[in-house]
Design a protein around this nucleic acid. Structure first.
Length: 838
RNA sequence: GCCGGAGUGGCGAAAUUGGCAGACGCGCUGGAUUCAAAAUCCAGUGAGGUUCACCCCUCGUGUGGGUUCGACUCCCACCUCCGGCACCA
């Protein structure tokens, strides 16, 4: 018998797949399509075993679907723009493009050595101008529809390097390179109006019944619809001068208007426009401004993660509570966010925990206006923490006695009638800032003309190509701004001198529609052909890391709706089924080059072969679960493949020596029938485990059990008869076919050895016969008071009454029931008997 | 801090979703084979007790409560770890 030599076999089949264009597909209206997609790769340098886990999951699904007769599109490409390439340029002087292209070449080799069945003819990288020109095209379409707009917005600014920093480049509030304290700076930046689609994106969640519930919950919370009221608080001046001030009203958004009688002060975000206006009239303007500046300079991440001490600054100004008519003070608070709501909140310390802490710190009044329906009365003076539960209103004028829910409706209506407020729906979702002051991204196709203003680059002038030459020193303005041939252009409207936008786009733009481009990746006339996309899309199975649960998947859903509104796609949700793969950790942390804990698949591949590595990664845990990498079990998978090889080869040899082997069910003995039953039970189990459950680890363990069973059968079968060979043939053929999505090279080789020349896809997925799989006898556990006391082996067809009778007669049961009365007997047919005895 | 997860033998895990806890694999132990080793094949393997062969009993799914005939699974509170938090992708 030949020995199993993975390297030779893997080379042979990879070459054959390449030569026969085995995974390249075309639209075929006569066949059922299946679009299987894994999130494309960021070409960071080397794929590690964590990345490739996802590609393996996709490959198992794609290969299984092919065997089931589907026309399977399984493409791959590169998310090639982004910060790390530019960092490499700054640190090592390599051009971002060189670095990126080299990495792609290396990683592509890695994936090919793993035998992933990609349609490589559709491959592209987002840094190809044939791709990013369609980013620009789409940006212009959105600009035309007022979905792209420009406004001032903050960035992290390193005062020493004179440059913009990404959040990742801010370490403990300092610049990653020079450690200077990072400041905030306002720049004109482009935004996409995703908030226009907020309600649609929320409603669409209802259609996503094949997504993990946790992702839907996260997205729902991210979009964060709250129904509340916008209430106006009139500003009064209680200062000696009684000098009037520019703005006379503050808008506040609240979901708890029922608590408004307890609003004892107002809090403003440090960035609130009113704050700047009152600085001048402050008693000590210099100190006031300094304190506000301190608030604004607080580390963004610290502010976000609640690491900051809650602090406030009294403004000396007051507003009138529109419901009580009382003047209440205005404070500035460092924990109030400018981006949410109106950037101003009414503080109700008795009924909001953060307001409560703030009030206690600055000795502000706490007034209870909601009493719980059941428990005793709260008192503002003695309250230990805010009481946030709804209840009924007290000390709230005409609204006293109402329930919270009733009060919200009535008080909102009252505010509307009095012209001081209205019902308002507020989303947490913010518009998407897409401007990046960096080189390695898609240039934003906009021109600024002194005479004509902001002008889109005409469609026929796309792409706006990224100039090859630029300086990368990590300081000063963005690299593109330093390339005068790029910056200086002519105005598309008047033909006069004009300047190009020098910001590039967020790389999330690239990744928000790449899945459509795969459907028609060589199209030079349009982002894609509408008919092609509408044949393949929506994506039937999409798999990727759980870390993308929100941003990437929300942005892609947004773009899908934009494409639908442009009449280019017919669906409103791009991904029918989502699988979020767990991360691969090592030493408790995500694998990353910077942490130095990556495991290179090539090392594993050299020792054990691609099939063993693939099998191991799929066997070690279910796909959704995060795993801690260890190489210990890999050897076990390699051992299993050796076991499969020897078993199948020996059956193949026996078959080659015998005449035609035909199954004749009437001649089977009990052992043979039992093996056939196991074979068919395994087919049923593996089929269900792969689709729809995608429990790939248990699918593999079922195949291992089948292998053990065949070995056991052969041990008890010294003289091989035609009959025993027939059941073995059936078992190993099913085994080889079902294993092929996991270990395609080995399976193709074994399938060929079994005398089949057309490959496993042509053979198709094995079918199971429920009659053969059915067990004649069952083992039913019998419990007394919930504890198993015995097991009965019974006929599968045994009636419930008879099962109950046999259980009660069993000596073990009798022993445990003696001295007690049988109160109840619970019989679950075919599953279990529980006898309740008192 | 907010949002979302996860926690089961020495280890990775399983339990088809409220019905036998620990399938399958790793590791370990013993045996066969071998001059020997590797490889391979076979058997055993949650803890404790009782037998020391068979049987049998108790405990056991992060912690503490609860619901139920029955809970790894559902509910409440807590602990630890992981992911996301809008410029890493």
């Amino acid at each position: 018998m030949r020995t199993y030599e993975p390297k030779i076999i893997e080379c042979k089949w990879q070459q054959r797949w390449r030569e026969t264009l085995a995974f390249e597909v075309n639209e075929d209206p006569d066949r059922k399509k299946f679009y299987c997609l894994v999130m494309f790769a960021y070409p960071s340098g080397h794929a590690h075993v964590g990345h490739v886990r996802n590609y393996m999951i996709g490959d198992v699904v794609a290969r299984t679907k092919r065997m089931l007769g589907f026309n399977v599109l399984h493409p791959f490409g590169w998310d090639a723009f982004g910060l790390p390439a530019e960092n490499a340029a700054i640190e090592h002087g390599t051009h971002p493009e060189t670095w990126t292209r080299d990495n792609i070449a290396h990683m592509k080799g890695q994936l090919q050595r793993l035998g992933i069945s990609y349609a490589w003819d559709r491959e592209f990288a987002t840094c190809d101008s044939e791709y990013y020109r369609w980013n620009q095209w789409l940006f212009l379409k959105m600009y035309e529809r007022d979905l792209a707009y420009r406004r001032r917005s903050k960035v992290n600014w390193c005062p020493s390097c004179q440059t913009v920093l990404a959040n990742e480049q801010v370490v403990d509030g300092g610049c990653w390179r020079c450690s200077s304290v990072v400041e905030e700076r306002e720049l004109d930046q482009w935004f996409l109006r995703i908030t226009h689609y907020a309600q649609q994106l929320l409603d669409g969640i209802g259609e996503l019944d094949e997504w993990p519930a946790k992702v839907l919950t996260m997205q729902r919370n991210w979009i964060g619809r709250s129904d509340g009221a916008l209430v106006q608080f009139e500003i009064v001046s209680l200062s000696d001068t009684n000098e009037p001030i520019a703005s006379d009203k503050l808008d506040v958004f609240t979901t708890r208007i029922d608590t408004i009688f307890g609003a004892t002060f107002i809090l403003l975000a440090p960035e609130h426009p009113f704050v700047d206006r009152i600085a001048e009239t402050s008693e000590t303007p210099a100190r006031f401004r300094e304190q506000i500046k301190k608030f604004r300079m607080l580390d963004r991440t610290a502010r976000m993660t609640g690491q900051i001490e809650k602090e406030g600054l009294e403004t000396g100004r007051h507003v009138v509570n529109p419901f009580t008519g009382e003047p209440i003070p205005i404070w500035v608070a460092n924990f109030v966010l400018a981006e949410y709501g109106t950037g101003a909140i009414m503080a109700v310390p008795a009924h909001d925990q953060r307001d409560f802490e703030f009030a206690r710190k600055y000795a502000l009044p706490v007034r209870v206006v909601i009493q719980p329906d059941d428990a005793g009365r709260h008192d503002g003076a003695t309250l230990k923490q805010a009481s946030v539960e709804p209840g009924h209103l007290v000390d709230s004028g005409e609204f006293s006695g109402l329930s919270s829910a009733n009060a919200i409706a009535k008080m909102t209506r009252a505010a509307e009638q009095r012209g001081i407020g209205r019902a308002q729906v507020q989303f947490r979702l913010k518009d998407w800032g897409v401007s990046r002051q960096r080189y390695w991204g898609t240039p934003i196709p906009i021109v600024y003309c002194d005479a004509c203003g902001t002008k889109p680059v005409p469609y026929e002038d796309l792409p706006v190509e990224l100039p090859k030459v630029a300086e990368f020193h990590g300081s000063g303005t963005s690299p593109l701004a330093q390339v005068s041939e790029f910056v200086n252009t002519t105005c598309p409207a008047c033909g006069g001198a004009a300047k190009r936008e020098t910001d590039t786009m967020d790389t999330f733009m690239d990744s928000s529609w790449y899945f459509y481009r795969y459907c028609d990746s060589r199209n030079g006339e349009a982002p894609f052909d509408v008919d092609k996309v509408n044949y393949w899309a929506p994506i039937d199975f999409y798999s990727g890391g759980i870390e993308h649960a929100i941003l990437h998947l929300v942005y892609s859903r947004f773009f899908c709706r934009v494409f639908a509104d442009l009449g280019l796609v017919l669906h409103t949700e791009p991904f029918t089924r989502l699988l979020t793969q767990g991360m691969v950790l090592r030493d408790g942390a995500v694998m990353s080059k910077s942490k130095g804990n990556v495991v290179d698949p090539d090392e594993m591949l050299a020792t054990y072969g691609a099939d063993a590595l693939r099998l191991y990664e799929m066997f070690v845990a279910p796909p959704e679960k995060e795993i801690e990498w260890t190489d210990a079990g890999l050897e076990g998978s390699a051992r299993f493949l050796g076991r499969v090889w020897r078993l199948v080869m020996s059956v193949a040899e026996a078959l080659a020596e015998s005449d035609a082997v035909v199954m004749d069910e009437t001649t089977l003995d009990d052992c043979a029938r039992s093996l056939r039953r196991k074979t068919h039970q395994t087919i049923r189990r593996v089929s269900q485990d792969i689709e729809p459950r995608v429990h790939l680890n248990t699918a593999i363990s079922a195949l291992m059990e089948l292998v053990n069973e065949v070995y056991g059968y052969r041990k008890g079968d010294a003289d091989v008869t035609v009959m025993s060979l027939a059941v073995q043939k059936e078992a190993v053929e099913a085994l080889v076919l079902m294993l092929s999505p996991f270990t395609p090279h080995l399976s193709e080789e074994l399938w060929e050895a079994l005398g089949h020349s057309d490959g496993v896809v042509a053979a198709g997925w094995p079918a199971f016969d429920p009659n053969v799989a059915r067990a004649d006898e069952l083992v039913v556990p019998v419990q007394v008071n919930g504890r198993v006391r015995t097991r009965l082996t019974v006929d599968a067809e045994l009636s419930v009454a008879e099962l109950e009778r046999q259980a009660l007669e069993d000596p073990h049961v009798v022993a445990h029931v003696s001295g007690k009365t049988v109160a109840r007997v619970i019989v679950i047919a075919g599953k279990l008997v529980n006898i309740v005895a008192r």
